[in-house]
Amino acid sequence: MKITKVEIIRENLELTRPYTIAFKTISDVENVFLVLELADGTRGIGCSAPSPGVTGESVEDSLRVLKEIAEPALHGATIQTFPAILASLRPLMLKQPAALAAVDVALHDAFTRHLGVRLVDWWGLQYKKLPTSITIGILSVEETLEQAREHMATGFRVIKLKTGRSVAEDVEVFTKLRATVGPDIAIRIDANQGYTPQDLIDFSKATQHLAVEFYEQPFPAGHDRGKVQAGDTLCGPAAQLTLPPDLRKLCAADEDLHNANDALMLATEGQPYGIFNIKLMKCGGVAEARRIAFVAERVGIELMWGCNDESIVSITAALHAALASNATRYLDLDGSLDLARDLVTGGFVLKDGYLHAGSGLGLGCDLI
Rank of each mutant, 00 (worst) to 15 (best):
Y330S: 05
K176G: 07
R178P: 04
R188K: 13
L119H: 14
V105F: 05
M265S: 15
F23G: 00
V103M: 06
L331P: 01
V32K: 01
S62I: 12
T154H: 05
D121K: 01
S325L: 04
Q96V: 13
M281D: 01
L241A: 12
L303N: 08
L303A: 09
I138D: 03
T154A: 01
L280M: 09
E7M: 01
I138V: 08
K227G: 06
D40A: 08
A153R: 12
K279N: 02
L15D: 04
D121P: 00
I136E: 06
I189L: 11
G300M: 12
T144N: 03
W123N: 00
L210D: 06
A221M: 09
F82C: 02
H108S: 04
L350D: 02
A267Y: 08
P245E: 15
A84G: 09
V299H: 09
A206V: 09
T4D: 07
L210E: 10
V105N: 00
I159R: 04
R43E: 05
S58C: 08
L247C: 13
D309A: 11
K351Q: 15
G41E: 10
A87D: 13
A191H: 12
S325M: 07
D28G: 12
I301G: 06
E68Y: 11
R298Q: 15
D40C: 02
L139E: 14
Q271K: 14
G116A: 05
L115Q: 12
E68W: 07
P72D: 11
M1P: 04
R298Y: 04
A239I: 15
L343S: 04
S62L: 02
G362N: 05
L257I: 10
R290L: 15
A293C: 07
A238I: 14
L339N: 07
L241S: 11
R291C: 13
M1G: 03
E269A: 11
V29G: 00
G56W: 06
T112H: 11
L331E: 09
S204Q: 15
G226A: 12
F82E: 05
V6D: 03
Q229F: 14
K2V: 07
T4V: 15
R188C: 10
G306D: 02
R149D: 14
D352L: 01
I9L: 09
L266T: 09
A317C: 07
A148R: 00
P18M: 03
R188I: 03
C283S: 09
D202N: 13
A148K: 03
T78F: 12
L355F: 03
P91G: 06
E37Q: 12
I292W: 09
Y215Q: 02
K176W: 14
E302T: 15
P72K: 02
L323K: 11
A110L: 10
D199Q: 05
S140L: 03
C365V: 15
A253T: 03
K282E: 08
L89Q: 12
L145S: 02
I69A: 08
L100Y: 03
E68Q: 15
G362M: 10
P218D: 10
N31K: 06
K67F: 00
L86I: 15
N259R: 10
Y215C: 05
I315K: 01
T16L: 09
C251K: 11
D254A: 08
N277G: 05
K128E: 11
L200A: 11
